[in-house]
Simulated assay, not measured.
Amino acid sequence: MPKSRYRAAQHGGSADDVEAAFYEALQAGDIEQLMACWADEDDIVCVHPGGPRLVGAAAIRAAFEAMFANGAVRAHPERLRKVESLGAALHNVLERVDLVTAEGTQHAWVVATNVYFKTAQGWRLVAHHASPGRSEVAEVSQPAQLLH
């Protein structure tokens, strides 16, 4: 991760800076930089596709450490949609995850929502929720039949 972007996220950068630092830490497999993006709150939340709700820094750290044991996560955020206010920012992205297999590089798609709060330490991630997705259904502007 470029140190300037990491420092910006650490020292009062924007929610955009923290998001960039988060994805760069994923791609580098750097647990310390990744966890530095999270708020220092007991109720921070992370949900990986098909996984349980992880609450608190210890549970989130353990899950990412397990992921990084298999190598870095090649997730690239695309098609950002965001809503921001004075103290909160909600970013919804389509993550392109590059999977290296014996047949070559394949792509998987994940729809992720990242929520940031402005804290005394600057902008920090308070929730990351990811679900399986498809690139061809990235956005729907018409109501659909949903489960809830």
Score class of each variant (00 low, 15 high):
C37A: 10
A63S: 15
R124V: 04
S131D: 15
D98P: 00
H11E: 08
S14H: 12
R79V: 03
D98K: 00
E139D: 09
G122E: 08
T105K: 06
D30Q: 11
L34W: 01
Y23F: 14
H48L: 15
Q106V: 12
A144T: 08
A66Q: 13
V47T: 02
H76T: 15
A39K: 06
H148D: 14
R96D: 05
S14W: 08
R124M: 09
A20I: 09
F68R: 05
M1C: 08
A63K: 07
V137Q: 06
H148F: 13
H129W: 09
I31Y: 02
A112W: 10
A72D: 04
A58C: 02
G122T: 06
Q10T: 00
R79P: 04
A21M: 08
H128S: 07
A69K: 13
Q145Y: 09
V47F: 04
A66V: 05
P52E: 13
E84A: 12
L99K: 12
L147R: 08
A127M: 13
Y23A: 12
R53Q: 10
I60F: 00
D42R: 06
H148R: 05
W109I: 07
H129Q: 08
A120H: 03
V97I: 06
F64Q: 07
G71M: 02
H107L: 13
A28C: 10
